[in-house]
């Protein structure tokens, strides 16, 4: 479904991605793990069309989307839940969700009410808070809103940038449970995470990104038992939070 080939991106001449190649097959859940500053957000933003790569290609369902503007990428169903959730704070929960519906574009114009119900049944707290300002929600609730907002656009590929960042362990678990539910329904997912333990536990395949390069890849279960990965990314302290 998604094929990224030799992608390279720079900020004002400072290279952040150095030839990244990866693929996300339809129906799979793929993880990208790596330390802070590795280029994970840069990678998602380049795929989304927020950043322009200076080399490489992004193909989505066979079509070249490399230099498409962000809103057109979104309308193809390649949707990103950005780092830090980016809730539109002064808008209500419901307004945030309704905006998410725009990405659906011409793909399927009907059934708003159904989609709202689907999001509310996945995240019941959003139904209770639907008239509140998005900015008044807790961090975990905002993450649910951000995911729900993307789901309103009926993503064909859902990309999430560190959805557990800054969340309490309980909230993080709820978010990961929701992702597992979506995966079980056949949703294709690309998950970026610093919390490698959780990411490897919930995905099929994973890439390790370091300093803008893919340094390792393989089935998530295999990476989770790789001694090198364990020593770098799965420290003991992580156990207490997962």
């Amino acid at each position: 479904m998604l094929e990224v080939t030799d992608l390279a991106t720079a900020y004002d001449g400072i290279t952040a991605l150095r030839g990244v190649t990866l693929r996300v097959p339809t129906g799979s859940m793929v993880a990208i793990v790596g330390p802070n500053g590795a280029g994970k957000s840069t990678l998602l933003n380049t795929i989304s069309g927020v950043l322009r790569p200076h080399a490489g290609t992004v193909r989505f369902d066979g079509a070249d989307v490399t230099r498409l503007p962000a809103h057109k990428v979104a309308r193809l169903g390649l949707l990103q839940v950005p780092e830090g959730r980016q809730i539109l704070g002064p808008l209500s929960v419901e307004e945030n969700l309704l905006l998410g519906r725009l990405a659906r574009g011409a793909r399927a114009a009907d059934g708003t009410a159904d989609d709202l119900d689907a999001v509310f049944s996945l995240f019941p707290i959003l139904a209770e808070r639907r008239r509140q300002e998005g900015g008044s929600l807790s961090g975990g609730q905002q993450q649910m809103l951000a995911i729900g907002r993307a789901l309103m656009g009926r993503p064909r590929l859902l990309m999430l940038d560190e959805p557990s960042l800054g969340l309490s362990p309980i909230m993080a678990r709820q978010v990961f449970d929701a992702l597992a539910t979506l995966k079980a329904r056949g949703q294709t997912i690309l998950l970026v995470e610093q919390n490698a333990r959780r990411a490897l536990a919930s995905t099929d395949f994973a890439y390790v990104l370091e300093q803008g390069r893919i340094v390792q890849e393989g089935p998530s279960a295999a990476l989770a038992s790789d001694p090198r990965i364990i020593s770098h990314y799965l420290p003991e302290t992580d156990l207490s939070t997962s």
């Binding site: 927020v50 503007p69 809103h71 808008l91 725009l102």
Partner: peptide, 24 residues
Amino acid sequence: TSFGRQIRAVAISERTAALLGISV
């Protein structure tokens, strides 16, 4: 209206608006 929501979304964050499929 939906247009009004989009205007307010763009006013708050152009990047987020674009990621939602809004033509800024």
